[in-house]
């Protein structure tokens, strides 16, 4: 019996050291993220319309503008690295507070034909989500297949922040952090304000290499599977689901005309099958009046738009949503 007690003691000792190390490392290395602000908002506010999707949606959709034109309370929960799997559990988390009337899913085809990467931002929603049954489900769906370090040591993907420890700690001790403020997310290039990411216009060569075009052969089955779960969940909860594709620069469309056509053909028929409204803003008939389609108005070929463009796009989006 003595040896058994010893084993327990030893295991406890190890767990204690690991927990302490984890607390310290998480605090010192994982920087403050707007996802924490989003998590906080959906826990305290009730929303009628929720936007889910990728960085294009985070840059392009101003929830305040849409709110103004639809008269419905809106929140933007799009972010880079949010695959349909993440969006599904994000929505479930939203519904713990209140069930929205409408969900707009911003579709970036790149997320439907690439594998989920292994970096901090791909796990951010998971890390920021408070412990609950939803998170447990999310863990089973997302983390089990991954490297165990991603689950057990959230700071694992943030080792590169070693040089910024001081700043991170200072930020986390600030009043702003405690009040879920946004002061930490402001830089000359972009800033998280009014619940979306506002890009400042830049006048230099626009990057092209991150553009992921729709390629059916590389279909990520998981993305489809979880989108269908999301659609099913919306049906069950009586939530109206709309899928949109944000406009990309004219140059991108010209360059990859065929690929964008394939995207439209494929997803039009797929979403029709799913019984979901689909609005693709890259079709000629969906051209937005006065909207600047030149590369100047975007940060890159992918289609991250500037803040004033986003306001204009959001007005159009709101009008289209009103007509559904």
């Amino acid at each position: 019996m003595r040896s058994f007690k010893k084993i327990i003691l030893q295991v406890l000792g190890i767990v204690l050291i690991l927990t302490a190390a984890n607390l310290v490392m998480n605090y010192a290395l994982v920087p403050y993220s707007y996802v924490r602000v989003m998590m906080h908002q959906i826990a305290v506010e009730e929303y009628d319309t929720i936007f889910l999707g990728t960085s294009h949606g985070l840059n392009g959709i101003s929830p305040n503008v849409v709110e103004e034109h639809t008269g419905r309370n809106c929140m933007n929960l799009c972010m880079g690295g949010e695959y349909p799997r993440d969006a599904y559990y994000f929505l479930k988390q939203v519904c713990k507070k209140s069930v929205p009337k409408r969900v707009v899913y911003e579709l970036d085809a790149g997320y439907w034909c690439t594998q989920e990467g292994q970096r901090g931002d791909f796990n951010r929603i998971y890390y920021e989500m408070p412990w609950s049954f939803v998170k447990l489900e999310y863990t089973a769906a997302k983390m089990l297949e991954l490297d165990f370090r991603a689950t057990l040591f959230p700071w694992f993907y943030y080792r590169g922040q070693m040089g910024k420890v001081k700043e991170i700690i200072a930020c986390k001790q600030s009043e702003d952090y405690k009040k879920y403020g946004i002061a930490a997310f402001q830089s000359p290039a972009q800033g998280y304000r009014d619940w979306f990411m506002q890009n400042t216009p830049v006048f230099q060569t626009k990057p092209e290499e991150k553009l992921e075009l729709w390629t059916e052969e590389n279909k990520n089955e998981d993305s489809f599977r979880y989108f269908e779960k999301l659609a099913g969940f919306c049906r069950d909860k009586d939530i109206e689901l709309v899928v949109i594709v944000t406009p990309v620069p004219e140059k991108t469309l010209e360059k990859h005309q065929k690929k964008y056509q394939e995207l439209d053909t494929y997803f039009s028929s797929y979403l029709e099958e799913q019984g979901v409204v689909f609005i693709n803003y890259n079709l000629p008939e969906r051209k937005i009046k006065n909207f600047d389609y030149s590369l100047e108005a975007f940060s890159d070929y992918e289609g991250h738009m500037n803040a004033d463009q986003a306001a204009m796009f959001s007005v159009q989006l709101a009008e289209d949503l009103n007509q559904i």
């Binding site: 983390m143 089990l144 297949e145 490297d147 165990f148 370090r149 991603a150 689950t151 057990l152």
Partner: peptide, 10 residues
């Protein structure tokens, strides 16, 4: 399952 995955540990 990979030898380094969470599911394998479990």
């Amino acid at each position: 399952m990979s030898l380094i995955s969470m599911e394998f540990l479990l």
